[in-house]
Structure formats: structure tokens, C-alpha cells
Design a protein around this nucleic acid. Structure first.
Lengths: 229, 229
DNA sequence: TCAATATATTGATATATATCAATAAATAAA
DNA sequence: TTTATTTATTGATATATATCAATATATTGA
């Protein structure tokens, strides 16, 4: 097992849920896993396809998205390691409910669901961690549902920018690794609206954009906009 | 324990998840539960409030909804017995992620989460049923997310009408027990839009509305509209 | 280097949909 | 019954936002 921070990872079980496992349980998983590397844009799993494994996302960055009525897509959230991704549907209809796509070179470890299920049934700490994981997904999904349906686009875009700085990249000037039109996918708006509103926020001195480098000058102002519009 | 179909119910454990329990496990729950009766409009639990119990919804009808930015609310789905409602957040931040409100006189049984957790940890069939339950909620939530953000209002309202006939009331002429403006809460639109579109669907001979009695004449046409707009 | 493609920008227009407003019908209260 | 209140209806208007279009800039490939 490699430590967090090393360059090459190989199913390193760094996600918090794996803390619940003993060494021998990890070895069990080792014999039921496959590691796969992805290039930017490659789909790791696709909404609607059979779901037989969980994913330990070990390296790179990816996006979780759901497909809408037309070609529209909503980007639910971005993923960075270490992350444990349990395809929802694994206890119901065995189909993926969302798609996962690499946005930079990435590495994902597929662990057979059978062995995960075994651990869920016999390891009390593991099942609690697993339930916490789904619970958080559900919580986030409900939040997104109300936010995407009740806010104006400026509020939604501001929320996305704060999410990127605070939760995803976790730095203030941050280098955007998705495209600017993808900000529209995260905030549910057209790419033209994204460009227009970004310029507006920049003109108001709230943010600065140089290429893909985003600086948030007034995070509290952005939070206010996110709340009130 | 009363059988399904009887008038008065009292924590009857009819929801599928309870099939996983033995008689003695049910007795355990019996000593950790409280039954509460509600009048129409009364809140059973409120988004953001502490979540310490799960709910067995035994009688009546209720709505699950999330509160949006302004006073806006999205009605996630309607609930009828038997239904097991595990407040999400019970494994994460111990707060309710949505509200539940009675729409007709209803009866709900609150079961202490401690005893549910005990069963999750020791009964393998129960934990699987519990996971299936959350999984379905997540699946539904993702579906709603894409549907509410990618369809036009006519498509969303058609979807709601089909949901009511096929999944909730399960009869074709159905008596609406929520208000017509609430159809807007389910479809994310203003009440005026609801009235306009209902009249439009009626003029086109797709549905008929007499008071609160809704008849769907052309369900396949409605499904088509729901899909393509 | 030059062409070709993708990304960014901005304006004009179209359109979905909310909001406001006025009134009608239905229901409840007195 | 008469009044008051809620629910329903419909039109006019305002507005958020997408779409279309034109062009500019940057990036890539030949």
C-alpha cells in the first residue's frame, strides 16, 4: 500500500471507509479488484449500464453526471482521490444511476461487489461507513435538487465557484480542470450564460480569471449572491 | 399486529423491510416506538430538525418536500402506507434532509434509531433491505434532478400526472388529494402555469378534470409528451 | 507558417415562464 | 341567504434565459 501523496497509486484504500477494514479484509479485496487507467474524457462507467463493482478512485479527477431529457447533462459533482464510489442501484436494480468520466489522467480500482457485500454483512464498522457514504450522497442530491430549481443562474454559478474553491480544489486561486462550458453543466445553464456571468462577476471585482486560473477576491460577496439569487 | 386493509393501524410493520425481522426483533422495536396521529397539513418532521427516529408510515397520505432558496418548495414524492422512511442524514449529520407533511389524516410510527441501528448491525436481511431502501431514494432523486432541470413544464406536468395515476393512486380516474397548486410544487412551476396547462391537456382530449377527479384518456400520449418535452 | 479547429465574446432575438392583475366561480362562514 | 374567503381562470406584461449569429482569439495540426 502506498501512502497519500505518492505519485503512483495502486488501489491504496485511502478513502475513509477502508479504515474500517482489517489487513486480512483488505487482502480479500485485493484478490477481487482490477485497476484501470483513464485518459481525459474517457468514461469510467456509464449511466444505465450494469453495476457489478464499486470504485475506489485513486488518482486524477473525474466528474459524476446524470443525463437529461435531450442531450442535456447535469454535472452532480467532481471527484478527487481518495473517494469511494458505490454505484447507486447496487442494492436495487443493479444499474448505474449516473455516469463517471475522467477529466484528467486518472486511475480507478474496480472492486467486485460480492466481496464488498460480504464485508457489509460481517463488519459492523464497514457497514456504518458505507451507510454514511450513501447518506451523504442523498443529502447532497437533495440539496442540488432545491438549489438548481430555486435559484437564478447568477446564484447557481456563484455556488459552483465556491464549491470549486472550497470543496474541490481547496485553494483560492485555483486552476480550472474542466472546461468553462462545463461550469454550465454544473450550474444548469448555457455556455454563453457562463461567459457572460463570469465577465460580470469579474467586472464587479468579485473574481478574476486569467486563462484557467480563477481567483476569488470576495468569497463572502459570492456566498451572499449564491444565497440571495 | 393488524393486517393490511384494516381501518386502524398501530405500527403494523407492513413495509417490505420489516419482512426481514423475526417476531422477537419486532417486539424489540415495539418497546422503542411511539405512534402519532396527524391532521391534514401537519408537519411530521421538518427539514433541518434533529433526526433521531425512523418512521413507519402506517395510515393516510403525506408529502416529502425540500425547501428551496426563497419560499419555493419542491415536492419530491407522495407517501402512502406501508412505507418505511429513514430520514437521510441519520448516518451523517443527524438532521432531516427533507420535510414530511400529512395531506390527509395520517398515522406515523416513530421508531428509535438506536434499535434500528442494532438490527442493521446484526440482521443481514434487514441491512440489505435498508440499503435497498436508501438506494431507491437516491435513484429517484437523481431522476428528479435531471427531469426537473431538463424538461419543459408541459413535460414535467405530464410526468407528474402519470406518476399520480400509475405509482401513487394506482387507479386511472383518480381523486386528487393534494391541491392543484401543489401539482406545481411537484413539477416546479407556478400555479397559474398548472391551471393553464391542465386546461390545455383537457382541450386536447388527453385528460378530463371534474373537480378533483382526474381521468387520463390518453396515457400513452401523456407519456410521449413527458418524454419529448 | 498557414490553415483548420476549438474556444471565447458579445449582440440581437426568440421563447419559456413567472408575475401581476382582474374577474369568475365555488365554497365556507355568518 | 348574504357575505366573505378560497379556488379557478385568463389576459397582459415583465423577465430570465436560451438560441442564433457574427466575429475574435487562441490553439492545434499539417
Amino acid at each position: 500500500m502506498s501512502k497519500k501523496g505518492e505519485e503512483i497509486t495502486d488501489c491504496n484504500y485511502q478513502a475513509p471507509i477502508f479504515n474500517a477494514l482489517t489487513k486480512s479484509e483488505m487482502s480479500l479485496l485485493d484478490s477481487h479488484r482490477i485497476e484501470v487507467r483513464y485518459q481525459p474524457g474517457e468514461i469510467i462507467f456509464k449511466q444505465g449500464s450494469p453495476c457489478s463493482h464499486v470504485v475506489s478512485f485513486d488518482e486524477g479527477q473525474a466528474m459524476e453526471y446524470v443525463e437529461g431529457a435531450n442531450k442535456a447533462r447535469i454535472i452532480l459533482r467532481l471527484i478527487k482521490p481518495p473517494e469511494f464510489i458505490s454505484g447507486t442501484g447496487i442494492f436495487s436494480d443493479m444499474k448505474h444511476q449516473f455516469s463517471l468520466k475522467a477529466i484528467v489522467p486518472s486511475s480507478a480500482c474496480f472492486i467486485e461487489f460480492g466481496s464488498i457485500k460480504e464485508l457489509i454483512l460481517k463488519n459492523q464498522a464497514f457497514v456504518q461507513a458505507y451507510l454514511k457514504n450513501i447518506d451523504n450522497s442523498l443529502k447532497y442530491s437533495y440539496y442540488k435538487l432545491s438549489s438548481l430549481t430555486s435559484k437564478y443562474q447568477l446564484g447557481r454559478l456563484s455556488e459552483t465557484l465556491l464549491y470549486l474553491a472550497n470543496d474541490f480544489y481547496e485553494t483560492n486561486p485555483f486552476e480550472l480542470t474542466i472546461s468553462k462550458p462545463d461550469l454550465g453543466g454544473m450550474s444548469n445553464m448555457s455556455k454563453e450564460s457562463v461567459y457572460r456571468l463570469l465577465n460580470e462577476l469579474e467586472k464587479d471585482g468579485i473574481i478574476k480569471i486569467e486563462g484557467n486560473l480563477f481567483t476569488i477576491f470576495k468569497p463572502q460577496r459570492l456566498a451572499e449572491i449564491s444565497r440571495n439569487s
